[in-house]
Write a protein that binds this DNA or RNA. Structure first.
Lengths: 347, 347
DNA sequence: CTGTTAGCGCTTTCAT
DNA sequence: ATGAAAGCGCTAACAG
């Protein structure tokens, strides 16, 4: 008769089994895992051997229940279809994973009420903390987080009042700077292709930046030259088609992100409108999608990866009770390519 | 003196509190949540009122511990930088979320041993089931899943032996068909830009499809015309530069995915090589990145979203003990655009 | 239809 | 440095 191998037992191997094999109590097994410094080196080795032999994997739910922390962080993003948030989440995930945290992912598809509901689901699933995109949220979201004592970081923007921890950049300044540049180049008539601003502070701020720069130069954005679009190439393409049908076309069209800008480029290409000869086009985010167009898309490079990393670091620090900077403002940079230039060089 | 509002209690509201307020036992609270049909309608309403009033959110860890299911599914993908997996995961997440499941996300960056380690982490975090990308995995991964009784689905490929549940399409056939098409168009000298095939069955199968079609036509792939690249534009661009430096350039360059193909286009653009005049280029996945290039990239449209949906549906069915189809083979389609054409039309 | 009771696997005092 | 024992919040058996 052999000693029963772990494979024959029908139930999961638990700390009890490890303890038995190592000839210690479950308390010691727990300590070996969580505070190995408090365990005699020899004992520790015995326990570790037993763990390996039994291929012990601790039971997270039991640990969470007892210790009140799950080592899971919820990331709620608008959508993964736009590559941006996927890349930020990737950076976030990497940093968190290195520290033993898992990322629970959810999307809200630009519906703030869905976001609230989804956050509730994730609390139920036990996440310790949250990462959200943007500063616009349902007030009930913040009460929920408060009630359940869940730390969170807002990303991709900076909370103007500084009431919420945030990691992002100044979306308004980004487009302001770009618009300034175009104005200096001589553009006077502007168009804007924008994502719906409802619950989307990034789009709102980016639009505001453009308007601010124009106002400063004594210019205005003709309402007919402001075309809303969903964040898809097709929708932006249609928006641009409407703009091209205008009696007086703008000479510069700014989009609130690269997908919209590329959609606009498609419409121009199709209509035989030369870029930048007849119309300059700019985006935001400096994605590969824009950079590889012909001509390359002028855009604002945003700190896509840094946001994810910084958010992860802040949450880790907070969850471990270490000091942290609640509001971080990162930089951006204008990236000029062939899609923009001085107006009126009708090629 | 008022009755203490929920806000003043320092600890989380639990089923006990709801039970007390509704004048029932915690068992009834649990039933109201999980099997409302077994509860008297009047009682049910009282319980639900109490839940709303106290804004009760059940404690997932406690539930998992007791019921042995966490309603979490782990999704382990190679990387989120390539938009593909983000979109599949998005579809997966949506379907799972509708059914009360949360998605725990992880990346392995094309390292099979990292994948194993990460899977262990997720088991520890308590996920009920897994979604993996591809059919190549560390054998120990499968033992681990077996040991812990975790169902899983492989995606983006079909397990040739049918030993593992999978949802995908025939990667080899996809490039085989495309290569056939190019051969029929008159191409004889081919180039291949491929991702590392180590642990990447998609790349391997896609390469095999091309070789098979060539062999069938009595052609061969010159080793000098096979250029490996990491899945980034820059790396593919370099690979194409090497190919362009060859004494005898291929007339058709196939890439194992769209990112690599677009990188190749960049190199051609830079070198003043006309597409498709001097060289035809094709990709796989039919992404926006490829579709929006000038000329548009000829590619193979893969069932990106359907894979995610089908994987979610299979896992839900399995976890709920319903019947399911273990191996699903989805379709693909060739999408022809301006980047490919008959050889030798030196523009 | 509802309450009582036991216990999921772990961590954490409190002893020693 | 280690063990004994309690209990995190919930669900599942069993009674009634």
């Amino acid at each position: 008769m052999e000693i029963a191998p772990p494979t024959e037992s029908r139930s999961r191997v638990a700390a009890r089994d490890v303890a038995q094999l190592a000839g210690v109590s479950t308390a010691t097994v727990s300590r070996a895992l969580n505070t190995p410094g408090q365990v005699d080196p020899e004992t520790l080795e015995r326990v570790r051997d037993a763990m390996d032999k039994l291929r012990y994997v601790p039971h997270g739910a039991a640990r969470s229940l007892r210790s009140q922390r799950s080592k899971m962080v919820g990331a709620i993003v608008p959508s993964f279809d736009y590559a941006l948030y996927a890349r930020t989440t990737s950076a976030l995930q990497q940093r968190l994973s290195e520290n033993g945290y898992a990322v629970v992912l959810a999307e809200h598809h630009y519906q703030l009420d869905t976001e609230l509901q989804v956050a509730r689901q994730l609390i139920e699933h036990g996440v310790d903390a949250f990462v959200f995109v943007g500063v616009d949220h349902d007030p009930r979201l913040f009460s929920l987080l408060e009630d359940y004592g869940r730390p969170y970081v807002l990303t991709w923007g900076v909370d103007p009042a500084g009431r919420h921890p945030s990691v992002g950049f100044d979306n308004r300044a980004a487009t302001y700077d770009m618009a300034r540049h175009l104005i200096v180049q001589g553009h006077r008539r502007f168009g804007l292709i924008t994502a719906s601003v409802e619950g989307n502070d990034r789009a709102r701020e980016r639009g505001a930046g453009i308007r601010a720069a124009l106002a400063e130069a004594g210019l205005e954005l003709d309402p007919a030259c402001v075309q809303p679009a969903r964040i898809t190439l097709a929708s932006a393409q249609q928006a641009m088609q409407r703009m091209l049908a205008l009696p007086q076309r703008p000479t510069a069209v700014m989009a609130t992100n690269d997908v919209l800008a590329v959609g606009a480029m498609l419409a121009c290409r199709e209509a035989g409108v030369s870029i930048p000869g007849e119309i300059s086009i700019t985006g935001v985010d400096n994605t590969d999608l824009g950079a590889t167009q012909t001509p390359g898309l002028t855009s604002v490079g945003t700190p896509i990866v840094q946001i994810g990393r910084a958010a992860a670091e802040q949450l880790i620090a907070r969850l471990e009770g270490k000091p942290f900077t609640a509001c971080q403002t990162l930089g951006f940079e204008l990236v000029f390519r062939g899609s923009s230039g001085p107006p009126g060089i009708r090629a």
